[in-house]
Design a protein around this nucleic acid. Structure first.
Lengths: 120, 120
DNA sequence: CAGTATCCAAACGGATACTG
DNA sequence: CAGTATCCGTTTGGATACTG
């Protein structure tokens, strides 16, 4: 495999974007950060129901891609705040489109396969 | 876990969108279909360098979500054509935003960590 | 509080063989 | 051609316990 053409080419914009958000948690974490502006480790964790390992790895990956800032305050108890970089922020329009799409999907699902409770 | 609030709530638009595209191949397959309009099984397979199992499973999942149409022609040799449904098509704006974002990321990466060859 | 370490399960991926 | 089935190794994800 590894045919480096089309989507899989390292210089392909959409392919690079896909790589940047690969994995289950990249987009959710970025979404939370986009909403909070700044969020602490356990804040993100609580909000997403993600495990330590996954959150740590996801944040590391996002840092390496230059999408997330990590600021550590040497206090007791320790405080670490995460936020989006400029490049990270730039994903928000895409996220908004995704949200609109998700809403469309929900609206187009009148059968409500799993929405047997409307006490919402 | 399974705190059904916020992003993880089944009625959350962005959460539902995340679920719909979960997995490594959903977006790439939808992207290929958005470009081709209609594509045959082996066409998608070649373009993405994806295995039979992964492609089959991905297409099934997308069908179940109502995002992809499968049209089978009873010819010899058999021909099966895949295309996006209306709901599937509706993801294109998001995809375009993603592409723009990917381009931004590529442009903002002058160091070219892996682009040691410019004979492209 | 913000992580690491460890172990285990599920998803992913490749090769090969087989089917309609 | 368009899959399905199986085996198997690797990667990713999750639960729990533990550390600075």
């Amino acid at each position: 495999m590894s045919e480096n053409v089309g989507i899989t080419a390292p210089t392909c914009a959409i392919g690079y974007a896909f790589k940047a958000i690969e994995g289950k948690w990249k987009l959710p974490v970025m979404y939370v950060l986009s909403e909070h502006g700044t969020a602490r480790y356990n804040e993100i964790k609580r909000e997403l129901g993600i495990t330590n390992m996954m959150l740590t790895n996801t944040l590391r990956d996002l840092e390496e891609f230059g999408l997330v800032n990590r600021v550590q305050y040497n206090e007791v108890p320790p405080r670490v705040e995460y936020s989006l970089t400029d490049n990270g922020y730039a994903i928000i329009p895409a996220l908004k489109e995704f949200e609109k799409w998700g809403q469309l999907l929900l609206d187009a699902k009148p059968e409500a396969e799993e929405g047997e409770n409307e006490n919402d």
